[in-house]
Design a protein around this nucleic acid. Structure first.
Length: 478
RNA sequence: GGUCCCAUCGUCUAAUGGUUAGGACAUCACCCUUUCACGGUGGCAAUAUGGGUUCGAGUCCCGUUGGGAUCACCA
């Protein structure tokens, strides 16, 4: 049987890395056996709704290539795919569940009111089978509802003993029914809680595998009770451990941790981010680490999912991003790098610049600091010309640069290879070490101790005119 | 606090009860080299702890410690 999985985010803001990883695993479970991946928006909490959040969800999934087979924007046979549009469905099933004995109507005070009153807390009473509303005969409850009294539908936990369920990641889990709360299923605003909407939707949409954070483990028996009351079959559960910021804290937007779009803005490639998070809690069983989404589809197995939390390590992501950057074709890289050249108004050889940058950077955001000297040469101290290994100092530099100027003026084939040969020749004929020519030239062209590319590469990027300008400038300075 | 879950290098992780406990990132050293990178070679580095079971335990069992989760008209 083909798997059907769903990604069911609530539109509360940015795309968390942890959520994206959950979506990835859901997508992969579906695609690993040719199944369908469904997108469902869980917007039953109107207080938390953020305008534009669904758009971010769409864009992110599309950007990483996780295309959904059914969803709010493209429809499908199990719609609607937005929970707020399914309101009547939940109400119908909630009332049905009451009839089936799986829930009851409750007229108790709302939580906020209860907290402000100084009497004892009715909230506590609910958790231990003491809800007075359970004793209200169904007929009477219905009359009160008909009379317009506000109500919620609350789950019945009548079972005793232990509940056992199987989880793909954690194995068999036992939880005592006494630990379960009789939680609200349908709120007084008529909208369902997650606890209820999920069960109803997952069943109606024929979801086969439910992937979610392991914080839901302890409430899973409650969901199973609802499935049971309706006579439905529960899905296969895949609870995944959280993605951590450090050993103590989850990665979370609230703590200001990076979201997917933050990382993209910091110069990380979506493909690299996806690849990295796939490995946060999963491994292929061999030593491969670089995977495209298509490759993951082929080798993913939920059996290899890890039980323990994984710390998000930006350093390793950065390394992996560097791998992806180096694997880009020169054209692809140039296209991605170009926006970062926007502050340079000089007519440089930008293709050559990209070529020199590509093997040297790990994130696109590193570009500006690498190329800051191109627009304008910084004010640098003459001591930069001092270099033991290159056997050079300001005096030698002055001598070398003076020799180089007429040589370069005669060069017509302004390529790295030719320039390198010409300068080496210049060194040889003047009985100088290569470094004694090349090092000063590089400093003269950049004013920096370290640069992306060597002297001749910089010369190609700057062009003949600017190169000679900068060398002459240096000579004056010396 | 009750309950549930987790525990291998600093980090991500591998290891049918039998391996010199493997790989990757980071780090260090060296090589390559027109600086810096890239690339290459090598080094450092882990089974939280105490008991069992077993000829043999990272692996199975129990305790301890540490960490996380959950106990909402949030998801």
């Amino acid at each position: 049987m083909k798997a059907r999985t769903r990604f069911a985010p609530s539109p509360t803001g940015y795309m968390h890395i942890g959520n994206l990883r959950t979506a990835l695993y859901e997508y992969l479970i579906a695609k690993a056996n040719g199944g369908d991946f469904i997108l469902r928006i869980e917007d039953t909490d109107q207080k938390r709704y953020v305008e534009g959040a669904t758009d971010i969800i769409y864009k992110t999934l599309k950007r990483v290539g996780m295309n959904w087979d059914e969803g709010p924007d493209i429809g499908g046979n199990y719609g609607p795919y937005v929970q707020s549009e399914r309101r009547s469905i939940y109400a119908e099933y909630a009332h049905k569940l009451v009839e089936l004995g799986g829930a009851h109507y409750c007229f108790c005070k709302q939580k906020e009111e209860a907290e402000t009153s100084d009497d004892e807390e009715p909230v506590e009473a609910h958790s231990k089978f003491k809800d007075p509303c359970k004793l209200i005969p169904l007929d009477e409850a219905k009359k009160r509802i008909a009379a317009g009294e506000p109500f919620v539908v609350r789950q019945n936990i009548n079972k005793k003993g232990t509940s056992i369920f199987h989880d793909v990641v954690y194995g068999d889990i036992e939880i005592d029914y006494d630990e379960l709360d009789e939680g609200v299923l349908l709120k007084s605003d008529g909208l369902p809680t997650y606890n209820f909407a999920n069960v109803v939707d997952d069943h109606l949409m024929e979801i086969s595998h439910v992937v979610r954070g392991n914080e839901y483990i302890s409430s899973t028996p409650k969901y199973n009770l609802i499935y049971e009351a309706f006579g439905w079959t529960p899905p296969v559960y895949v609870h995944v451990p959280p993605v951590m910021k450090d050993s103590q804290h989850k990665l979370s937007k609230r703590n200001g941790d990076a979201s997917f779009q933050d990382l993209v803005a910091k110069g990380y490639l979506p493909e690299a981010i996806l690849n990295y998070i796939a490995l946060l809690g999963w491994n292929p069983g061999d030593e491969r680490e670089i995977f495209s989404l298509q490759e993951l589809e082929k080798c993913f197995s939920s059996e290899r999912l890890n039980k323990s939390p994984a710390i998000f390590d930006i350093t390793k992501l950065t390394w992996m991003n560097g791998c992806y950057i180096r694997n880009l074709s020169a054209e692809e890289f140039h296209k991605l790098a170009e926006p970062y050249y926007k502050d340079i108004t000089k007519p440089l050889n930008f293709k050559a610049l990209s070529a020199v940058l590509q093997p040297r950077i790990e994130t696109l955001a590193q570009i500006p600091q690498e190329i800051d000297f191109l627009q304008q040469i910084p004010d640098y101290p003459l001591s930069l010309y001092e270099n033991k290994k290159m056997k050079t100092n300001p005096e030698i530099a002055k001598h070398s640069l003076a020799l180089v100027v007429p040589v370069l003026q005669n060069v017509t084939d302004w390529t790295n290879e030719n320039l390198f040969n010409v300068l080496k020749e210049c060194a040889a004929t003047n009985e100088l070490k290569n470094g004694q020519i090349l090092y000063p030239v590089r400093i003269a062209l950049s004013g920096k101790e370290t640069t992306p590319g060597g002297a001749t590469e910089l010369a190609v990027i700057l062009g003949k005119e600017e190169t000679l300008n900068r060398i002459n400038q240096a000579l004056e300075k010396l």
